[in-house]
Amino acid sequence: MLHILTKALNSDAAHQMQQAVGEEDIVVLTEEGVQAALKTHWEGWQAYQSRIYLLAEDVAAWGLNTAVTANGLPTVDMNGFVTLTEHHPQIVTWY
């Protein structure tokens, strides 16, 4: 399953998503969700390591490129996002 989070980490959407993410699920942070780049202590970075991505276009729009690079966080561009959806039949958006 692929989870898309479009809201900041302090939202109900984020908390509910965290309860729903299974051990093999993928997480893509988009729109407001890319603010997670500023919260390197967020437990999700550890819990979903190597299966969580920030949407690169939104990171750039939000002015977070430097933070993402400095914190070594994984991004995926729109092409990569579409490719991720190819591999996951079930896709749920938390907004």
Partner: peptide, 19 residues
């Protein structure tokens, strides 16, 4: 909401990939 913009970008990208 940014949702319509995200949806349009996603639509154009998936079509460009041949989906």
């Amino acid at each position: 909401s940014p949702a319509p913009h995200s949806a349009l970008r996603f639509a154009h990208t998936l079509l460009a990939q041949g989906h």
